[in-house]
Design a protein around this nucleic acid. Structure first.
Lengths: 257, 257
DNA sequence: GAGTGGTCTAGACCACAGA
DNA sequence: CTGTGGTCTAGACCACTCG
């Protein structure tokens, strides 16, 4: 079958056409698009236009163009980030890691995890939240990078005061802590009873963040800062979650006063 | 003082330069930028480049270019959307409207409200949530559009089953309902005890949404769907909030089980 | 009519990846 | 070396707004 003839298209329309071909699966996630000159011919436009259309799709996160390598499809449906993930019932079913793996596998993609644990100096904001002195190496941080078939989809960092976490199970670089971090803290005598999530739906990434998530600098990200408090009001955990903006849906349940 | 000479800049760098001049106040919100040809000369680049830089800033929501009229600065700092807004204490201090007005005035801008009340057919999703039949005019909807010096920053729609809201205070097109919608519903015998917020941090607007918010089609928006339930589990209110993505920070407090 | 942004082309050169 | 995307220019024409 020959290519459908196209009326003269603008770059937004070229972007829309490609977008629809991507989300309907004609170009599956992790595949490579035809080269820009070929698309230019197909749409009867100059390469400049196709290139500008690609910029739009890259900023939306549907696509990741790379010099010399071609343009890879990075589209993924959003995954749910729910306050229910902090409930005991969810933890007992395998927690966040299990849910992530299942979601990614259901899309026919390969889940991967990278985890590092180190002692580090927290950013000022986090130091203040945890009530530790600024500018000192006084925290333990567990960092995770979650990928789907090589596409980074989450960047996590959990910060704990060293005074609490030093030489405990939290320092083990295991991908999962049995029962979850909150259970581990509870066993150490720091049972959390209250949490806050501060969500920045859309902001530009720093250069380091863009590199870690392998996104173009125009692509916005969602930033979630989760803090957990014990009954006496002490903050014992701050966890930040970064994700390319549209890879996320957030669901919160809460009682009304 | 003559213009600072510039080294040869790329379009991302031109965008960055303008971005920083905007957020530092050299070009204040609601002012108009110099014309593209002038900026091209200042940066020693072609107008094409400046135009592409403007596309980036428009997608970020910092500016709003308009044919024939020039490019207006639409930058605003994010405003907080908090679960605390649903508490009695907040309502008694004047509620969401008062908070919005105060925030906008503090920026030196003029708050404006548009409100319409009508009977309408809810979208299928909302009909299902409210437990009313699809495809029927069986709901009351209160729509609000909030602006800061003419820049639309929020689009609200609150849906109620007509069976509850018909010929009540909810049908009055007053900009504020005394004590808030939740109090009004409580007085009608529908006290809400539980709420859920479903947050889509970043999605593309429909054409109608882009028009109502006066944004470019590439500009992403945040979509919050709030549902309120009575003690017997009945959903009596669904409120959707749309905002250009970076005009928003969301804060949620919740107890841990 | 003059000035604004919106779009488009044709061609060019560069940086990078891979055979 | 070839082919990929990244960038850039000069010029053109169009649509829209406002005086």
């Amino acid at each position: 079958m020959s290519e459908t003839p196209h009326a003269k298209l603008g770059f937004r329309e070229i972007a829309a056409a490609l977008r629809s071909e991507i989300v309907t699966g004609k170009y599956p996630t992790a595949s490579v698009l035809p080269p820009e000159p070929e698309l230019a011919e197909r749409y009867g436009a100059s390469r400049s236009l196709v290139n500008r259309a690609m910029s739009i799709l890259a900023a939306e996160g549907l696509v990741r163009p790379r010099q010399g390598r071609g343009t890879m499809v990075t589209w993924l449906p959003p995954m749910i980030h729910s306050s229910a993930r902090y409930s005991r019932a969810t933890r007992e079913r395998g927690g966040a890691k299990g849910a992530f793996d299942a979601e990614v596998l259901a899309l026919g993609l390969q889940p991967e995890h990278e985890i590092t644990v180190e002692r580090a100096e927290p950013p000022a904001e986090i130091a203040d939240a945890l009530g530790v002195e600024r500018g000192k190496v006084n925290c333990l941080v567990r960092r995770r990078r979650l990928l789907a078939s090589g596409i980074p989809v989450r960047l996590n960092a959990s910060w704990f005061p060293l005074s609490i976490a030093e030489q405990t199970v939290l320092e083990e670089p295991a991908p999962v802590i049995k029962g979850g971090v909150k259970s581990a803290l509870a066993e150490l005598g720091y049972q959390q009873v209250h949490a806050q999530e501060r969500i920045i739906p859309s902001r530009l990434p720093s250069d380091a963040e863009a590199r870690a998530l392998e996104i173009s600098p125009e692509r916005t990200i969602t930033d979630i800062v989760h803090t957990g408090q014990t009954a006496d009001g002490r903050v014992v955990e701050v966890t930040t979650t970064l994700a390319p903006a549209h890879y996320l849906v957030i669901v919160h349940d809460f009682p009304l006063t």
